[in-house]
Design a protein around this nucleic acid. Sequence first.
DNA 1: CTTCAAAGTTAGACATATCTAACTTTATTT
DNA 2: AAATAAAGTTAGATATGTCTAACTTTGAAG
Lengths: 219, 219
Amino acid sequence: MPTSIKENYLKALHFLSLQSGVVSLTELGNAMEVSKPTVNDMVKKLAARGWVRHERYQPIQLTPEGHKAAALVIRKHRLSELFLYQVMGFGWEEVHDIAEEMEHIKSELFFQRMDELLRFPVFDPHGSPIPDKAGNMVTPSYQLLSHITSPCCVVLKAIRNSGTEFLKYLNEKNLQLGIELKITSIESFDGSISVSYGHCEQLVMSHSVSSLLWVEVVE
Amino acid sequence: MPTSIKENYLKALHFLSLQSGVVSLTELGNAMEVSKPTVNDMVKKLAARGWVRHERYQPIQLTPEGHKAAALVIRKHRLSELFLYQVMGFGWEEVHDIAEEMEHIKSELFFQRMDELLRFPVFDPHGSPIPDKAGNMVTPSYQLLSHITSPCCVVLKAIRNSGTEFLKYLNEKNLQLGIELKITSIESFDGSISVSYGHCEQLVMSHSVSSLLWVEVVE
DNA sequence: CTTCAAAGTTAGACATATCTAACTTTATTT
DNA sequence: AAATAAAGTTAGATATGTCTAACTTTGAAG
């Protein structure tokens, strides 16, 4: 049985290994805000349970079982977020922190009922895919708004960061998932992007904002 | 901050001290299913935090702060039970175990929203009172069905034990809160009670069943 | 191809929550 | 009042998750 601390290590390993597939001890330690010896010990325990592969001085890799265990925690997290949003009426900027606690509830019944009530949803309130009971999730091929190189129309599909502050910023600007953004200009020197949408004539987004928004180009 | 383990000790202390106001180390150890030295250590920690009063070789007593801390955990538990029952559609026999996990969620926002959605309820699905945010709860003056001495009509108001097995038994017999029971006879030698209600002509309840049902006499 | 900083490991420590075995105190029983 | 069982305490051990300080390995730069 993974303790909730081990579940958090698994989640961190999952997200950190998205790019290269492997994770360094130091990276994991930074993500979990613990020292290197702590990570080192924990990685041994995770390896003993078959969730990671690790050889001395080598980077860490999640095993298929580790990936599945991580996905099932992420499933609980994202189902919780959607439940908080849809059933309990929380704002999308409030759900992450509460879901961070709910994801460690062990009762399978609880999440099964949630899943049913929400009609087996595939996306959470931030547009992230919800893994199914087997730990599989869809992998939409969105692009980061910051990667768009020429003016076009895009639809906002997902938010890369579910931190409260950033979501509050989006609320202020009336930016919700599904909204259509018309890109009017791209400043190549600082990467800022001007968009218009809804009742907003022009919003200039810095690169640090546009790099957190997943979009889909409208043909 | 009480860890979830300390919260469980506080709950146990609350329930065990209902009768006499004090609790022995041994009683608490039995309730928590831990050894006496473990209880002894924990009691020192609880005392250090001001939740219990304890002198060597003397019984343990919750302080007012301890009582309040316990009541706030019980509040989270009972709110969760009602939420699971009313909003999520669980049966009253399913909610206890899930609420046992939910009660340790720290987010105040979560329980505040629950409270609002449920319209500030005063009783959980088993008829137990829900403490308010200050830790105060109503104390209804019900009687145990097993204490009734002469045939009369009573209304089932609360269940003393929220264990799954007992509640499933009540489900089978179609016994719900609010139902009116006509007591037709009382066997003084074994304490069994015959009742009729709803579509049931006669049900003979053993003392062990009737001593778990809180009722109110109908005038 | 040596040097050296970054990455990783080891050793030893601490806090929490638990245990068993042995000892002390309290209170009841004769 | 002495004996004794029950209740409570102490001592010493274990598991988990964490730390700092010191040491080793790896790999990149000169």
